[in-house]
Design a protein around this nucleic acid. Structure first.
Ligand SMILES: [Zn+2]
Ligand SMILES: [Zn+2]
Ligand SMILES: [Zn+2]
Ligand SMILES: [Zn+2]
Lengths: 302, 302
DNA sequence: GAGCGTTCAGGCGGTTCA
DNA sequence: TGAACCGCCTGAACGCTC
């Protein structure tokens, strides 16, 4: 074989590209160097997918054990009870298959009991049912946060103005008008008292800030507001605000059960507010004798 | 701000409606805390095994629905179309059984369409067909690894010898004979040139190490080798090596398409090598005048 | 990601009628 | 008797929880 192995020996370096240590280029060859799983089912020898019920088994033996081990009437071997349990034969005799499952140490107690199974299913159903509720709750929470931020910015502005300009007798907006101011402006006394009664009722409810901003949002997105053209969209927004308000109140009631019928009361107040607004415009027109308000002016004053 | 933000909202729905998205209590139907699953088939009342096609059904109705719902010619009720569908009577009228399946909400679209079924079967067939291929590929991979390791050990030995003894002018084996050496030893010039042409051809192929060791293995397991008694086994081994070489080259060609006909070329080289080997022995005998080689000596030198 | 349960199609022996 | 039907058993694929 001199020549044969000659060729072998001489060609060793010939094709290789100037490699010094010959043993080096062994690993990175094209074939897959990844580990093939030599794991085989300890019951039947099929390819195992992992540990199931405390034994390394295939999917088939896993399912078979789970289905079979808790049955009251176990299978019976029609032969001598020593059937071969292989991938090809495992379906032949469920009794010997189950016996081998137990022999190799598969644990019956790791199969969920019917009670545990019922509990698990109930929990799943509960989570399933709560998932959309949580989603809705989260969306509503974000909406409240947005309204709160906007309101905070608005109030902060007003508050800053109040603090900064109080000494200069500058008060912007109808924040602190007195009854005398209103009377002096020409409003009817009954109207003024109505408004003050409304404020008193509202104050007695001791609303939290989220409730207040939500109620303000319901009032803000009124499709009846003069000048509104996209009534549909505004109405949907208003409904969303009202639903959120209702939901928020229901949520709070679990911790403060005293606020019963709060949502209904707020709806009533909103209705009253609408009437007040109408009357307000009547009074304005009566006082100033304006025959019509241009849309821009309405938007500013409303 | 009170007057500014005010706006009447009268559109809100009655506050008594409290059916939000809150789901009914989903406690596991407390009636039976026993293992008895109160789940019964919504079609026939038999014991249900789980949800099948989006309805809680027994195995029978599950299989019936799958087999029946996609048939073009549906069953027809021989009566008034209002047959009782119970565990005992469900086989009597397939038409009413199917109708009840649909009535309780079993969904036809959850039965695999013929296309999806064909796809699934094709995938399964592909997997089945590729499984032995993967197995063979894995075995070939292991064989190549074994050959590579053996080859590496051999080369390392030769290399070490080369490095360690070069300064002592010790070169073991015909590794680096020159043409002059060979001529001086008595070989015919044409024979020497033949060998060098062979080496040049082999070198131009720029074999990878797996290809090289496989080719060496094919040459090694030649049943024509003098002294071989178990020709059958050796021939089978040689065929296995040749098949693995062919398979490896085919596999590599998917990434390196330039090596066309490589397997055929290698087979040709092996044939040539056999001729060279024969000629070598002829030359040896001519030079040394040996009338016959004992098997042991052949084995050592071949 | 490992290891459970769930759900689908399929295999197969038993059953029902024509 | 045999073709269609039936339903139990099987395992592959997937979903879910820790
Ligand atoms: Zn197994
Ligand atoms: Zn058995
Ligand atoms: Zn049923
Ligand atoms: Zn019928």
């Amino acid at each position: 074989m001199q020549l044969t192995l000659d060729s072998v020996a001489c060609m060793l370096r010939a094709p290789s590209e100037e490699q010094g240590p010959v043993a080096a280029p062994l690993i990175p060859e094209g074939m897959d160097s990844r580990e093939d799983e030599p794991r085989s089912c300890v019951v039947c020898g099929d390819r195992a997918t992992g540990y199931n019920f405390h034994a390394l088994t295939c999917e088939g033996c896993k399912g078979f054990f789970r289905r079979t081990v808790n049955k009251s009437t176990g299978p019976t071997c029609p032969f001598t009870g020593s059937c071969e349990v292989s991938r090809a034969q495992r379906r032949r005799c469920p009794a010997c298959r189950l016996q081998k499952c137990l022999d190799v140490g598969m644990r019956k107690d790791m199969v969920l009991s019917p009670e545990a199974l019922a509990l698990r299913r109930a929990k799943q159903a509960l989570r399933r049912a709560q998932q959309p509720l949580m989603k809705v709750r989260k969306e509503q929470n974000e909406l409240v946060q947005t309204l709160l931020e906007a309101h905070t910015r608005y109030v902060a502005t007003m508050f800053d103005q109040f603090v900064q300009f109080k000494t200069q007798n500058f008060l912007c907006g109808p924040l602190c008008y007195t009854v005398e101011d209103a009377l002096h402006a020409g409003f009817q006394k009954e109207f003024i008292e109505w408004i003050f009664h409304f404020h008193g009722t509202l104050r007695q409810l001791r609303l939290q800030e989220p409730e207040y901003v939500l109620m303000a949002a319901v009032a803000l997105f009124s499709p009846d507001r003069p000048g509104v053209t996209q009534r549909e969209e505004v109405e949907q927004l208003q409904e969303k605000m009202a639903l959120t308000l209702d939901s928020y109140i229901k949520e709070q009631r679990q911790q403060r059960p005293q606020k019963r019928f709060l949502y209904a009361k707020l709806l009533g107040l909103l209705t009253e507010l609408r009437s007040i607004n109408n009357q307000y415009w009547y009074q304005i027109q009566r006082i100033q004798g304006l025959p019509a308000m241009v849309p821009l002016l309405q938007e500013i004053c409303s």
